[in-house]
Design a protein around this nucleic acid. Sequence first.
DNA 1: TTGAAAGCGCTAACAA
DNA 2: TTGTTAGCGCTTTCAA
Lengths: 338, 338
Amino acid sequence: MKQDTSGSRPTPTLEMVAALAGVSRATVSRVVNDVPSVDEDIAAKVRQAILAVNYTPNRAARSLASRRPNSVTLIVPESTSKVFADPFFASVVQGVALYLADTDYTLNMVIASEAKPEKTRAFLLGGNVAGALVVSHHAGDRSWTHLSDYIPMVFAGRPLGESASYYVDVDNEAAAAGATRVLIESGRTNIATIAGPQDMPPGIDRVNGWRVAMAEAGLDDSRVEYGDFTLASGAKAMRRLLGSGKPVDGVFVANDQMAAGAYTVLQERGLRIPEDVAVVGFDDDSFATSVNPQLTTVHHPIIEMGKKMAEILVDLIEGKDTARVTQIPTSLVIRESV
Amino acid sequence: MKQDTSGSRPTPTLEMVAALAGVSRATVSRVVNDVPSVDEDIAAKVRQAILAVNYTPNRAARSLASRRPNSVTLIVPESTSKVFADPFFASVVQGVALYLADTDYTLNMVIASEAKPEKTRAFLLGGNVAGALVVSHHAGDRSWTHLSDYIPMVFAGRPLGESASYYVDVDNEAAAAGATRVLIESGRTNIATIAGPQDMPPGIDRVNGWRVAMAEAGLDDSRVEYGDFTLASGAKAMRRLLGSGKPVDGVFVANDQMAAGAYTVLQERGLRIPEDVAVVGFDDDSFATSVNPQLTTVHHPIIEMGKKMAEILVDLIEGKDTARVTQIPTSLVIRESV
DNA sequence: TTGAAAGCGCTAACAA
DNA sequence: TTGTTAGCGCTTTCAA
């Protein structure tokens, strides 16, 4: 870093702008905060002065004087952050950051250590933060729910069980049903599913969606094998499906990673996709396109989720009332696997 | 959020603690800031009062009064954030956050839009931030380097070309050479490499490491095919290697994802790993263990990188002098592919 | 519509 | 070793 030699002026303050524009600090403050009652000529002069001295408001002073924090916190439970490659996390953060960029709120992040939650609690409740977002990999994790009583909080994903908190999610069940219908409409009749863990909402909702579509078509909805959302578990589940002796000509897989696992098994047995068995995935992550033939899947708009979470949080902070649950629409991406 | 009904007291202030402990605010401030010159009995009394009223310092006030910002910013170039599944990013953030958790600095994040960089610039230079970290996927991206003249900055990864900035990285070349030696020591003699893009430092350095090891063993170092670090590109490169007619009994692949791609080709040709061809990867990410047989690879300590970056940044902020380049050690993870 | 003045909660000389 | 005092840079009544 360069030394702060000689005459390098201090960071410009409101005061300096006021002096240059020939008005009071209060007026400058009003201009900066877009208070309508300012004479347009004066406002223009002030804005010019702001540009001239290259003024940026001091956030700490602003927050102190206005008695309201200007940052929101993203809480990442330590367990989540341990999941090494977590595209979900990165994309939610991206969406959140993109939304907040257009507001006056700054985004800060904490890793919430399960060991000493008081630290995080104190930080959040100490009046330093306007609200918080929780991105937990296990969408069932609600250890922070109780803080909703004190500051605005928004969660990613439907909670397991009842909850009075705000959250945004996709309609996993409806999307899964839609994906299954693609299989059905392609003429497949022996359709199985590789489901996710039944202790997290996406795992539960996605099989249910499959069941709904199967039932409405009058097809057998008993062919389900479970995985844990990893590639390896998808391969194992596919092996079990194939080993059962019953025919399979279509599979709805609860996420793309497991679908990629299923691909390996299908292909090592010489089964063609989609001719012999059609596959539909869920998430539309990097696995969907890195696989051959490319996977038809449900697009999970993670960045949008992040944006929506931030939007709802800001609304909450500003006292607007909003719905507790927000579902963002998914879409089906038709590629080559059906 | 619960209503702020009736007698709910305001956030406790220094003043309240002082009153309760029967001392001046200055003394409380000293205790909070661990100033040594405080009488231990008084300090104890103060600490008790702090607990009693559940006091948390107001960060804005602190920052304002001390005239120094208490947050550091993580800059994520928009192009990086577009990389959907970026485990690298998530892990660096994790390391950074873990380190900062034990300091008084708060971590905030901005997505730096390439469209309007002035916004980010203004934020960073407005005196609101003590320092910044840059995590760019393309380690060559140095569009923020010039800010180093004004605030402390630390980058992830060796820059392309010269640079006067601070950065932390692994010694890609040495690590690649080490990985290649494992292949050599296992008795392989026809060793190829699948290299990464030659416009980013890791791509360059890793082939060079391979060359070093090959040369020192007196082996032919001409068998190189290039990929772009994706799984698909690794598969293609492997296909080219196999199609060349020359024998291959070992491959050093510049990252695990491409190694996974190479696996698929090897296995579809009926070649056994490691019996027919041994493979060593680089990164030790989730691909390394999701593949069968599990991949022997170089462990890239990303979280450690994040921690180190934060550590160096804090040192810089506090005026300690530190080395411009910091290399963190890698290790070889021996699994089943050699 | 504008300005004067009183703080926001804290730190940091300076004095005692 | 402790307290007094004067701000940090801004917002926000209140009066004009």
